[in-house]
Design a protein around this nucleic acid. Structure first.
Length: 489
RNA sequence: CGGGGUGUAGCGCAGCCCGGUUAGCGCGCGUCGUUCGGGACGACGAGGUCGGAGGUUCGAAUCCUCUCACCCCGACCA
């Protein structure tokens, strides 16, 4: 029995909130919809960020930073883009406060801005206003820039990590000489995201294209990685957009090609956010709390000394000293919990926090020159000779990483159903939930009707679709695409 | 923006219907001691403008009016 945490079965959504707060990942901020990422949650983000940043740089991109504030007029330059974001923008209208009669503060009306400023919901517009200045010739291309930043989207309903008013992310913005090159870039970065999700976060993802309805406002088309969470709902975990010449035209960004002809450049943008932390929690967590993949876990091993008195404390600590040195030198991230809490309390606490491997060390272990290792993913308990630790710990961490991935993959397989009739479709979505794979006639109308009737949306048109010979699950017409439907976060 | 709910100690709540000593309980927190291989125990202790503003009353956490905030569920979104 886990104290203070709703079971997944009882209420998955309450479970999520309980775990996020009890594990010390995040807390609510004072302004509605805002969140504080606490040190333990931020450590996970740091590890994720480090891995992704390396991949972004290895694929030829450089980091830069663009301003938080954007002239309001910029947003309107790309027609579709405005539609997408206008409804959720924070706007700066004044720049000063003054003392009010009641002793508080009020907006100083004299400080009203000539042109109002918006807080970026995404940075395409500022970045393209700058790219106009920076790009003249084909020699300036490709321009491959990424930024790590915060963005603000004033959402109605928010949830820790999954949808907050302000969130952290990385947004890449690239400019290319040809449409082919832009498309190649879009797919390349999607592949980076797939690697991040699968190899680091141990979350299997479906890759493919978004339907027109679901694509990014302002993009020609959007690719995505889509994952199944523990409640069988889908979570869009990363997107990569081919923006075509939409922003180049909106911001008049042209270059001279080798034939001395002026052309609009081709653009891409791609991003993943702190939502991925939510994905890790939702994909791997169980009733005991988090289960973190070793590659991004803040601590890979937690050591719990078990002692009776000062003498045993002394002995255990001496016993542990070379073990710790060893782990440090092999770059294992570990933490010794020497707090006054009881061992049982610590076991539960660190299970809640999802540490992949627990090491218990007590007087008996000191006698036997062994330690007790317990896996968070399977609960397996092992008595391991100290001399084996140097090899055993990295091997176990690798195995836990792999096991988490396999479990999630297995779960997705079990809950993905290929259907050919709308009755089957409704029965799956309405009862057990999960991913439904079926034919779609490609029309916005059908997509909308299904959403209206079942709440399920097209999550992705997978790259491995085989629409030939299929008929639309809703209209019975020949299918244009084979798609994945699911209820989504 | 619609529907629902909650504001009383750091957290979770009781008290409110039916106004009346010094506002209570659990957890947590502090000191000391005993404990320590699956959420230990005892003793003592600290901690409150009862979300805010008005009003009714001899007297308001409790009744009335207004207001603010947050959470959950729907429509929109990474």
């Amino acid at each position: 029995m886990v104290k203070g945490v709703t079971s997944q079965k009882q209420d998955f959504s309450a479970w999520y909130t309980d775990v996020v707060t009890k594990a010390g990942m995040a807390d609510y901020g004072p302004v509605k919809g805002t969140m504080v990422i606490k040190p333990y949650g931020f450590a996970l983000w740091d590890n994720l960020k480090e891995a992704l940043d390396k991949m972004i740089k290895d694929t030829g991109h450089v980091n830069a930073y663009f301003p938080l504030f954007i002239p309001k007029s910029f947003l309107a330059k790309e027609a579709e883009h405005v539609e997408g974001f206008a409804k959720e923008c924070a706007i700066i209208t004044h720049t000063r406060l003054r003392s009010a009669a009641d002793g508080g503060l009020e907006v100083d009306p004299d400080s009203k801005l000539e042109e109002e400023v918006i807080v970026r919901p995404t940075s395409e517009t500022v970045i393209w206003s700058m790219y106009k200045k920076w790009i003249q010739s084909y020699r300036d291309l490709p321009l491959l820039i990424n930024q790590w930043a915060n963005v603000v989207r004033w959402e109605m309903r928010t949830r820790l990590f999954l949808r907050t008013t302000e969130f952290l992310w990385q947004e890449g913005h690239t400019a290319h000489a040809t449409a082919e090159e832009a498309e190649e870039e879009t797919l390349k970065m999607l592949e980076v995201y797939r690697t991040l999700a699968e190899d680091f976060l141990a979350i299997p993802v479906l890759t493919g294209k978004k339907s027109h309805t679901e694509k990014f406002a302002g993009a020609e088309h959007t690719y995505c990685i889509e994952a199944m969470m523990g409640d069988k709902k889908a979570l869009q975990s990363g997107t990569s957009h081919n923006l075509g010449q939409n922003f180049a035209k909106a911001f008049d960004v042209t270059f001279q090609n080798t034939d001395n002809v002026e052309e609009y450049v081709y653009a891409t943008s791609w991003g993943v956010s702190t939502r991925l932390i939510g994905a890790v929690i939702l994909a791997h967590g169980d009733d005991k709390g988090l289960r973190l993949p070793p590659k991004v876990a803040p601590y890979q091993v937690v050591i719990i000394p078990i002692t009776r008195d000062e003498e045993s404390q002394q002995k255990v600590s001496e016993f542990l000293s070379p073990i710790q040195k060893n782990m440090s030198s092999s770059s294992v991230r570990f933490n010794v919990d020497a707090s006054k809490n009881s061992p049982g309390f610590k076991f539960n606490e660190w299970e809640m926090k999802g540490v992949p491997l627990r090491m218990e060390v007590g007087p008996r272990d000191v006698e036997n020159e062994t330690v007790v290792l317990v896996r968070r993913d399977t609960g397996e308990k092992m008595f391991v000779p100290v001399s084996d630790l140097k090899e055993k710990i990295p091997a176990l961490l690798d195995d836990i990483q792999q096991t988490l991935f396999n479990q999630a993959l297995q779960f997705r397989k079990e809950n993905t159903h290929t259907v050919s009739t709308y009755d089957e479709f409704k029965s799956i979505i309405g009862n057990d939930g999960g991913f439904v794979r079926c034919g779609w006639d490609g029309t916005v109308e059908t997509e909308a009707a299904i959403k209206e009737e079942t709440k399920a949306t097209i999550r992705v048109i997978p790259f491995d679709e085989k629409p030939a010979g299929l008929s639309c699950v809703y209209t019975g017409k020949p299918a244009v695409h084979e798609v994945i439907f699911a209820k989504a976060y």
